[in-house]
């Protein structure tokens, strides 16, 4: 497939993850905890990882984070999405590359989800300059596991179908 084809497909993935990200931001936070974002847009980054590979996945993620904070207008959210998304994606890249024989996709995604929330807590603790914010770690761990599991399932289905469509 030509570079142009690949560029177009990656651009579409970025657009899809942007839409998911923006819609998710409109959902009211159900839990009174700072930084609990469902992180649903990470489905797309995970799909990019499964279909293309680590570099493409990182590019899709960085573009979504950059454009997402430009479109929703907050510098703070850039730091959050970046640290959460990057930590989560790097963790999943490493686990996928070296351990995929020992770990199922849903477990990789759960690990990614947990890293996502830990990354967000980390940035929050730096911005507000306190360690007390780690009080919210237990509930963020649980939400990270749950969303990670569903993101893993979704990415599994989606990437299998996309591969059949031969977009790579």
């Amino acid at each position: 497939m030509s570079r142009l084809h690949k560029l177009i497909y990656l651009a579409m993935l970025v657009a899809i993850s942007l839409v998911i990200y923006i819609v998710e931001l409109q959902l009211p936070s159900l839990i009174p905890v700072p930084g609990v974002k469902l992180g649903l847009a990470n489905v797309v980054s995970l799909c990019a990882l499964l279909i293309y590979g680590p570099s493409e996945a990182i590019i899709v993620l960085l573009l979504r984070v950059l454009l997402g904070s430009m479109l929703t207008g907050q510098m703070v959210s850039l730091a959050f999405s970046l640290s959460g998304g990057l930590l989560s994606l790097l963790c999943m890249i490493v686990l996928n590359k070296y351990f995929s024989n020992y770990i199922s996709l849903w477990a990789i995604s759960i690990a990614g989800g947990v890293c996502h929330n830990i990354g967000q807590l980390f940035i929050a603790s730096i911005i507000v300059d306190t360690l007390k914010i780690y009080y919210y770690l237990p509930i963020l761990l649980i939400s990270g596991v749950i969303t990670g599991y569903f993101i893993g399932l979704a990415a599994d289905f989606i990437s299998k179908h996309l591969k059949k469509m031969r977009i790579n």
Binding site: Y102, A107, I110, A111, V114, L141
Partner: peptide
């Protein structure tokens, strides 16, 4: 799978 178990145990430990 072994890796799944390790990840789950790790998360439960942190929790």
């Amino acid at each position: 799978k072994k890796g799944n178990l390790i990840i789950l145990v790790f998360i439960v430990l942190i929790l």
